[in-house]
Computed example of a mutant assay.
Amino acid sequence: MRLRALGLWLILFSILAGCGRKTPPLPPEQVAPRQVTGLRYELRVSGVKLTWKVPRRTLAGTPVGHLKGFEILKTEKVIGQGLTRSFKIFVPVDRDLDKVSSFGYEDSNLRSGCRYVYRVRAVRGFRSVGPFSAPVSFSWHSPPGPPEGLRLEAWDRKIYLFWRPPQSFLDGTPVDLPLRYRLWRGPSPEALKPLAVLVDGTSFFDGSVENEIRFCYRVAAVIQFYGTWIEGAPTEVLCAIPHDLTPPSAPRALVAVPVPEGIWLRWREAPEPDVAGYRVYRARKGKKFVPIHQGLIARPEYIDRTLPGPGVYVYRVTAVDDSPRANESPPSAPVEVEYKSKER
């Protein structure tokens, strides 16, 4: 019995002694964040904006937890001279990254005539630093100033843009590089999007607009500097509304026949799909034409019951479209008819 009790005590002691053991801690290198991915750059008038994805795991595969910040390695090389400098920029994290997928940094400390290379890595703590990301690189030149004298001319389903080239770059030096232009268009100044193609000259014809709808524009000069496209300061935003200014074609084959009720008129319909109706004009022979009804006539026929008396009358007809301006066509060829009496 004593031996059995002694064995139970030995087993219990072994279990209790084992509970205090811990696995050896991982070295800082293994709990460092994984490599930053998705590094991108966006050039702006003021410099460059970098964005990248936030790593969620350590090199050992565990959750990364809180990050102290990110370290940016910036390399600057003077083009054509071979002079190279490197800088380290620490960007602290001042917010919870659990609900964000990306992080960013804007660098306005760029020198014209240099090429830049950026790499980014995540910092968790002392000796707990992740590997650098893949690099991004670009060449930098002071951007062009805004184009001058932008003006718009709105016509029927088209808008013309005209401007003059900028005379200097934003650093004050005269423009000595070829310029192209990027156009931005949208329904309002706050909703502009860039057009797909760059423009070579200082004018643009936009034939993809619709009448009675507002279109807003701005223009920026663009240069290509050692393989990098750099967009300059934009013009102010101007807006225009194209209008339907094209009238329908004149009605054809007008005929006039006396009937007991008056004069019956018939003509061939105008072929345009936006015709809202027709307007009939009458005149005494040798006198001025005047409209003889209110509003528009929907069908291509009409009986004139308002004749003032017997005589020779001349008629002509116009077509009117459905635009806000109610564009009226040229008149049809006139027809002459003699009316003898209103009596049957």
Rank of each mutant, 00 (worst) to 15 (best):
V136K: 01
S137W: 05
S137E: 09
F138Q: 10
F138M: 14
F138S: 08
F138N: 10
F138D: 10
S139F: 00
S139Y: 01
S139K: 01
W140K: 03
H141M: 13
H141S: 13
P143F: 04
P143M: 06
P143L: 08
P144T: 03
P144W: 00
G145I: 02
P146N: 07
P146A: 14
P147W: 01
E148A: 14
G149F: 09
G149A: 07
L150C: 06
L150G: 14
L150K: 05
R151Y: 12
R151N: 15
E153C: 12
E153Q: 15
A154T: 08
A154H: 10
A154M: 14
A154W: 03
W155G: 11
W155F: 13
D156N: 15
D156L: 01
R157M: 09
R157Q: 04
K158F: 06
K158N: 05
K158M: 11
K158S: 13
Y160G: 15
L161R: 12
L161Y: 13
F162L: 13
F162G: 13
W163Q: 01
P165M: 02
P165H: 01
P166D: 03
P166S: 05
P166K: 00
S168N: 12
F169M: 13
F169S: 04
F169E: 10
F169W: 10
F169Y: 14
L170E: 09
D171A: 03
D171L: 05
D171N: 05
D171S: 02
G172I: 00
T173S: 15
T173A: 06
V175D: 01
V175H: 00
V175W: 02
L177T: 10
L177Q: 05
P178E: 05
P178W: 04
P178S: 03
L179P: 00
R180D: 04
Y181E: 08
Y181C: 06
R182C: 10
R182F: 08
W184G: 05
R185P: 12
R185E: 14
R185F: 12
G186P: 06
P187R: 10
P187F: 02
P187K: 08
S188H: 10
S188N: 15
S188G: 04
S188D: 13
P189H: 06
E190K: 12
E190D: 09
E190W: 12
E190L: 10
A191Q: 11
A191K: 11
A191C: 15
K193T: 15
K193C: 15
P194Q: 14
P194L: 11
P194C: 09
P194I: 11
A196M: 09
A196Y: 06
L198R: 01
L198N: 04
L198F: 05
V199E: 12
V199R: 05
V199Q: 08
V199S: 08
D200R: 12
G201S: 10
